[in-house]
């Protein structure tokens, strides 16, 4: 407050009280036109690379979505045929359903779990720094490597079934990743395990900005724990929720490597997602045109949900 109330003239002289200000006593140089423009051309190599690698490559890929290219040799333009095939094929529609289920399931559970952990580790616990590291560890580890560890855990001869057998519940033992009912849920467990730590870090950053005084004032006014969370903490961390859910949805919609390592989309397509289908169609089955069309559909879905989610969670309606 003092600084803002300081008279203008005094503020202007303030540097004189301290050490010598840089450039003092020198004749001020007139700003050149280049500086005014901000030397935008310095960014030109980067801009060219981004356009070439991201936009031109994506555009070419988008073009192939309208062809029957197999990945080698010549091709013909087939119009919307690849897109029609996608929406007629029950495997692709199943992949779309799985994609949405896994994306929203992992965002919901991962963010709720991340928020609970962040609230628990925000201030009180002495071991919070160690626990934060442990909870964040899955984000740092390779998704592919951890997926193989999970595959071992869910294996028919793995620790879960060994435990079930040891407590006399051997009837419940099953090949979890090859069971049509359970496979997609086991994949969800792995995704939530991997995303919770990331959400936790974002929420912890948000919680650091919640003033303790306001929480204390609410407590003095008689607000209970839930009311303080609902009316003080939650509104304050709204931007953090927006970031965590947006990134979570984008990440969840394009999930690929854990599924390839865990189930390879099986059993019989039960855990297939759009991303695994893009890979299989374009590269494994030599249907590059179909894979490119599927990739475009996936990109459109990600864009749609990212925009919707941003609009729902923005804190300022004028943004």
């Amino acid at each position: 407050m003092t600084a803002t109330m300081q008279p203008k003239s005094e503020a202007a002289k303030a540097p004189l009280r301290g050490r010598r200000a840089p450039g003092e006593g020198e004749t001020p140089r007139p700003r050149s036109t280049g500086l005014q423009l901000g030397h935008w051309w310095w960014a030109l190599p980067g801009i060219v690379l981004v356009i070439a690698i991201h936009y031109v490559a994506t555009g070419i890929g988008g073009f192939f979505a309208f062809t029957n290219w197999t990945g080698i040799g010549s091709f013909k333009i087939v119009g919307w045929q690849n897109f029609e095939a996608i929406f007629k094929d029950p495997t692709k529609l199943g992949a779309l359903t799985n994609t949405l289920f896994l994306a929203f399931g992992s965002v919901l559970l991962g963010n709720v779990g991340g928020l609970i952990i962040a609230l628990g580790l925000n201030r009180m616990l002495k071991t919070r720094y160690i626990l934060r590291t442990l909870f964040f560890m899955p984000v740092v580890l390779s998704p592919l490597a951890t997926a193989y560890v999970w595959k071992y855990i869910f294996d028919f001869d793995g620790p879960i079934n060994v435990f079930l057998t040891s407590i006399g519940a051997g009837d419940l033992a099953k090949p979890w990743l090859a069971d049509p009912q359970w496979a997609v849920w086991t994949v969800l467990v792995v995704l939530v395990w991997g995303s919770t730590g990331f959400a936790m870090v974002i929420f912890m950053a948000g919680l650091a900005g919640v003033p303790v005084e306001v929480e204390e004032a609410a407590a003095i006014d008689g607000a209970n724990l839930w009311q303080r969370f609902r009316n003080v903490t939650l509104p304050a961390i709204r931007p953090a929720i927006a970031i965590a859910t947006t990134l979570g949805i984008v990440q969840g919609l394009r999930v690929f490597d854990p599924i390839m390592a865990l189930t390879n989309g099986g059993p019989a397509g039960a855990t297939e997602t759009l991303a695994t289908q893009v890979y299989k169609q374009a590269f494994a089955l030599g249907n590059f045109g179909g894979g490119a069309a599927l990739a475009l559909v996936l990109a459109a879905i990600i864009l749609f949900f990212a925009v919707i989610q941003q609009r729902l969670t923005r804190s300022n309606p004028e943004d």
């Binding site: 049509p180 019989a268 397509g269 299989k280 494994a284 030599g286």
Partner: peptide, 21 residues
């Protein structure tokens, strides 16, 4: 004529074993 036929067979057999198909 293409690898998709074999993929449909192989994936389908998985479905036969799990009772999905």
């Amino acid at each position: 004529p293409n690898s998709a036929v074999y993929d449909a067979l192989a994936t389908g057999v998985q479905g036969l074993i799990t009772g999905q198909k």
